[in-house]
Each structure stands twice: as structure tokens, then as C-alpha cells.
Design a protein around this nucleic acid. Sequence first.
DNA 1: TTACTTAGTGCCGAGAACGAACTAAAGGGG
DNA 2: CCCCTTTAGTTCGTTCTCGGCACTAAGTAA
Lengths: 397, 397
Amino acid sequence: MRKGDTQEIRRLNRRAILGYLRKSPLTRADLSRLTGLAKSAVSRLVEELLQEGLVAEGASTSPPLGRPGTLLHLRPRARFALGAELGVEGTVLLALDWRGEVLWAKEWRHPREAGPKERLERLLAEVWPHVPGPLGLGFTLPGVVVEDRLLLAPNLGWRGLDLKPLLQEFPLPVAAENDAKASALSEVFFHGEANLAYLVLSTGLGVGVVAEGRLLRGAGGAAGEVGHWLGQGEKTCSCGRRGCLETELGLGNLLAHHQALGGQAEDLEALLQQAKEGEAKALEAVRHLGEALGRFLANLAVAYDPALVVVGGKAAEFFPYLEGPLRQSLRAHAFLEAHQDLPVRPSVYGHLAPAVGGASLFLARFFELGGLWAERPRRNGGRYEEVAFGDRRGLGA
Amino acid sequence: MRKGDTQEIRRLNRRAILGYLRKSPLTRADLSRLTGLAKSAVSRLVEELLQEGLVAEGASTSPPLGRPGTLLHLRPRARFALGAELGVEGTVLLALDWRGEVLWAKEWRHPREAGPKERLERLLAEVWPHVPGPLGLGFTLPGVVVEDRLLLAPNLGWRGLDLKPLLQEFPLPVAAENDAKASALSEVFFHGEANLAYLVLSTGLGVGVVAEGRLLRGAGGAAGEVGHWLGQGEKTCSCGRRGCLETELGLGNLLAHHQALGGQAEDLEALLQQAKEGEAKALEAVRHLGEALGRFLANLAVAYDPALVVVGGKAAEFFPYLEGPLRQSLRAHAFLEAHQDLPVRPSVYGHLAPAVGGASLFLARFFELGGLWAERPRRNGGRYEEVAFGDRRGLGA
DNA sequence: TTACTTAGTGCCGAGAACGAACTAAAGGGG
DNA sequence: CCCCTTTAGTTCGTTCTCGGCACTAAGTAA
């Protein structure tokens, strides 16, 4: 239950101003109208933001009548964050500014058997040259993450891992998050849709859900692990159970199905190439997957009722071939009319998406705090606390 | 993006004080420590609340050392709300105070073919004698409700209904909500668990999810319509599609299964009676349902990751017989270890639960506003706006 | 040149919290 | 019996932030 004082009011109003400026340049008068704040209050806060170098003055407006205003805009690269993905294949590290622009990115592969300690130490070595500067480092894992603990990551073969000791080695604030959840957050942060589901479909299947602008984490960080919905199948999943949806929809099964049709593709890259060339069996296998995905999306739609579904992971590359059958199947299976034309689009960041999501953890937090970063530094040793808005605790807390 | 001024500070701090007092009586000094507010600020706000009759002074504490404090508590029945359920069978109307105590309740049945206009007019007639007084009337429907519009209620046979014109007839603030969502809210409001799923299982199946104290509604109010997840079945659902989970788990199918086993029960009441008497076929049918429910809950757990599942609807009455097989099945099918012992319990309000949920819409809102009810009366004609905390819009809005 | 319109600043008052000093009310020890 | 310690609660002056009004600034139109 958050208490209020004058500093809290200042934070709320700075947040509002930065939030509007993030979308487009505005004059002080515009901000006063939009926020409902008095012009004098806006002027004062803007003056503060100018001093801090977060905001800059730009061109003048030329209205049909009256004195022209001075447009204010956020200064590009005034603040940025690092993001990393610890994926099954390798690691991606990048820097991202508040506009979502990737300032630089670096990737490396790793031995199959590399453990968490080894991989995080390599990451630490890569991060060192870039501090100080970034707001923080957010990194993602393909598994269930809660409060810097990794409960289970079947596709990495890791489980029950307390990351805190490793994270304390880093010379800047660090946060860990599930890959789908972080990706979902980056979508809402950069594209503004407050209700969406971000599907990560590669070997595994997971979804990050944002509802009313807030990430749905659940009590133990496991919300959205829909790859482990039990279906009618009988195949054994990497989690050890049988019949998980992931065994049907995961791209491993796409390859297997293609081979069962008599297709010749040794990996997904080859299969994708064949689809691009119009090879019939490849297209048929993809069509089959798209149909199953459409049915799955119909279930996703009634579970979370998103206004948008973003497809990420390796499946995003197959999207042009998946899209048709997927939409047709979704239309046929949707519960509500509104879901028949549920917008579905591929992720824009490609394979960088999870790392972008990681960085957006800190960018989102920065704007949530109204840019008051230096003034409240490193509470809890700099651990990131919450990205979404408002109290995490609710009515009964 | 909410702005802040001094009134907002006051609201936040009144909300904090009322929130703590709602749980137990406390002295001013306790409140100061808990909220972090200065003693003087607490005294001033408490004085205000005493004047308004929301809070009263009670006994003195007798600490081992120092001056005794005066305990403060919320005055029972100082505020209350009306709640109603427009169910398939009939209508329930009740009054509920902030402690969750049902002040009075009234129920009536209605002709099968009664339409929304007819039923709401009857409700209006029953409500008239009780106004003014209540904070508002929240009523629930077994269907998809968004912003006072009922999109679809298969089990009522209603669809695409704009309730606003009907609701404007009421002489107090009115809000409509899905039955499972409202029930879920009442659970979090009265029992304090911020992450839970409230299952309504009768003829239909739906779930209300609360995550971090906020109701999960989705973009179109359809989140949690899990009764319409498509499974492997082939039975035709009331929604017109085939294979909805509801056709498997709905209690209609329980009765059918019992009959298929050779059981003799003409309705659920009779079946329940037989289960109570230990009749083998009844117990077997219920066991079968419990097993399927356990599997379903494993899926629900990975979808929303609640810390608690509450079972409501007619199924709550079967809970003693469902519980064993359900837990066994859940344990066998759970994805995470944490979900193996996911607490599952029946709703405490019995068949009044949805109406209690309706009333809790207004009670929750009242506390969210820090008890500033009369001061912000009837914006939008008294329409209830949001129950959950903070901005509904998020990062990108 | 003047009237009008809109942008932005300066100043003061209001509301709220904070903090320090103070009073109130208990128990315990000499 | 008095005084000391401890905790509860109040009073009062200070600080912070916004709101509102008056005012200046900078355009267009007549």
C-alpha cells in the first residue's frame, strides 16, 4: 500500500510528462492540456527535465493563431539499458535506448554443456567495458523465473537455481526474467498496446501476457507457460511429462512432420529455405502447423483475451507461410466474433527480441519512476523491483 | 496516466490507513509505523475519518511499557453495497457490508423465457426500497461483460446486449460484471490472497483470475472463459462450437455420465444426495469428474499461476467428494512442483458467492478511493469505472 | 497600429506531510 | 512518594508541490 507525499506527486507528474513526450514532441501548453496540470507546474517540471538533460527544446510550432510554442522532445540516447538473452543456442547482448533503437549488439555461441556460472561469467566479462552508463542489465531465460531465481528451464536443462549470488557480481543493477514475458513487455513499451500476448515459439512454447499494461507473472512467475498445457498427445516433453502442447506445436515437431511426409530437410533453416522456394512438402508441413496454431490461438484468446498476438521465436521466420492457415483456423475456431480477426503479427526485432525485452525491463522502470533514477539509487542493491505500474500487492495485501 | 496533486496524496494515505484498519484494529502509532507516515499526519487523517463516521475509537492497549494507545477500528455497517446475481436459475439480491457480512438476502426464480428487460425491471423494483443508502449495486451475469455491455451469455441465451439504457433507470450507481470475475474479486477483497483463480463450475465453466490484486479482464472482458477452451471432445457446446471443455467438465455431463454408468438421478440435487449417502455409481461419476478437473487445474496453473484456486458454482457442493481425486490428479499432472500442492478450496459464500462478488465491486472501489465517495459523486452518471488499483492504461497508453 | 489569441513565466496562497518539541499516561525503582 | 523511562498522541512551524491569476511574449488579422 503505497503512501503519498510531495515527492510521490512529483514522480507521478514527471511520469505523465515523460510518458506523453515519449510518444511525440509537444509544447508545454500541450502537456498542460493533456495532463491536466497547471501551466506553471508543467513549466517547472520541464525546467527540471531540461537541467537533467532528459528533455531538449526543438522547433517552434506555427499555429494559425497566437504565439508559437516550443516543441519539447526526449533526447535520444539520454538514457539506455543493456539487455541479454541466455538462449538455448547462444547468448545475445545489446544496448537499447528509450526509443527502442539498438545501439549495438553482440552474440556468441557456447558449448552445449556450459552451465549457468560459466555463461554468466562470460556475460559479465562482455558487460564490463560498458559500465558505468546503462540504467541496468536485464537478461532473459527460457524458463520460469521468479525474483532472481530460476525454477525450471527444461530446454536448458537447468532447474532450481538461485541466481542472486551470480548477479551480485555485476557492477550495475541486474534483473532476470522469462524470455516471453520480457519480450511482451518490450512490445507494450514500444508499441503501446496494453493488452497483448507475445508468443515465443521455437523448440519450446511460451507466452508473455500483458493485461492493462501490466505483465502477468502469477504467484510464482509461471503464468503463460502454455507450452505445458496438456493436450491429447502422447509424446514425451522435455519437462518429463507426456502430452504437453509443446510436443505438438514446438518446431521440433514441424521438422519431424516434414520428414514423415517424406521431406528432406536436416534442420529448420533448411526447411525454411525450402518453404521459401515453394517446396510442396515443406509448405504442407508449415500449413499443418499453422492450422494447429490457429486452434491454439483460439484457446489463448479465451484465456487472456488479448487485443494483439505477436509471434516471436524461430516461428516468426516462418510467419509468411504460417499466416494464411493460421488465420483461417483461428476464424473457424474462435469463441467470440471479436476473436475471429484477432490481429496476429510477427515480432519486429527478430532474434534480438528477447534481449530487447530484457533491456526494456529497465527502460520501462525508468519511465515508471518518472526518470528519478539517480535520486533513488540501488535500493536493495540495485535490484530491479517492479516494471509494471502501481502496487504489486493488491486489495488484500 | 494519472496526475497528482495534494488531493491525490490525501487519497493515497487515507487508502493506506483504511486498508490496514480493514484487517485489524490499530492505534495511531501502529498506523504511523505501518504506513511510514508521520504521527501528525496519521492523527489528522484519523480525525477526519472519525468525523465521517467511518472509524471509531475502541479499547486501549496495555503495553508492557509506556502510555497505552487507543485502538481504532472501522465501524461495522458504516458503508455497504448491494450485489445481485442474474443466474440461469433465478436472481439473488443481497446487501453486504465492508466486512463481508451479508446483511440481508432475497432470491426469486423467473420464467425460463424471461428476457433481460423483464428481469432487470424486477430487480429494480426490489432495489427501490433500499435506496438511498448503499454505495452501489453490482450485478453479475454468466457471460462476457465489458463496459456495461453483455457480449455473449450462452447459458442464458443472450448475446450482444447493451445494458446501459436499462442501468440508467436505477437510482444508484450500477455496474455489471461477469460472475466468475466478480466472485474472484470478492475472494481477494475479503481473504487477501492477491493471486488466485476462482472457478465457477455449474452448467458452464468459467474462471475469474486475480493477479497481483487486480482482476484480469482482457481487452474485451473475455479473459478466463476457459469453459470454451477447445479440447479433444466432440460434443456440441451451448456456444455452438464443438469440443469445448465445458461439455466435458460441465455438471450436465456429470449427470449424463452417472446415467451412463446406470445411475438413477434425475437432477444434480438427487445426484448430490446419492453421493452423500455413499451410492457407488454417484461416487464413481464424481470421482471421474474430479480426475478430469485435476488435469484441468494443472493447465490452469500454468496459464495463470495462481497461489490459490477457489471452487464455486454448484460444484462447490460436491467438493467433499471431488477433492480427493482432484488433488491426486493435480499432483500427477502438475508442471511445477509448486503446483502439486496448489491449495484448492470451496467458496465460503455458497450460492450467494456471485452476488457477494457483485457487491464487492463497489466495496473494493470505495476502499480504493480512500473512502472519498461523496466527494467524487457520480462521475459519468455514477458508472463504476475501475475496481483494481492504479491506472488501467499501461506503459504505452 | 491595434485587437485578439495562444505560449509561457512569476508570484502567492492552499493543502498536505514532516519533524521537533511538547504533553499525556502508563510502569518501575529508589 | 517522586522521578525516570517509555510509548502515545498533539501542536506548531517548515517544506514541498500544485493551482490560479496576473503578466509578458510572440504571433496573425483587420
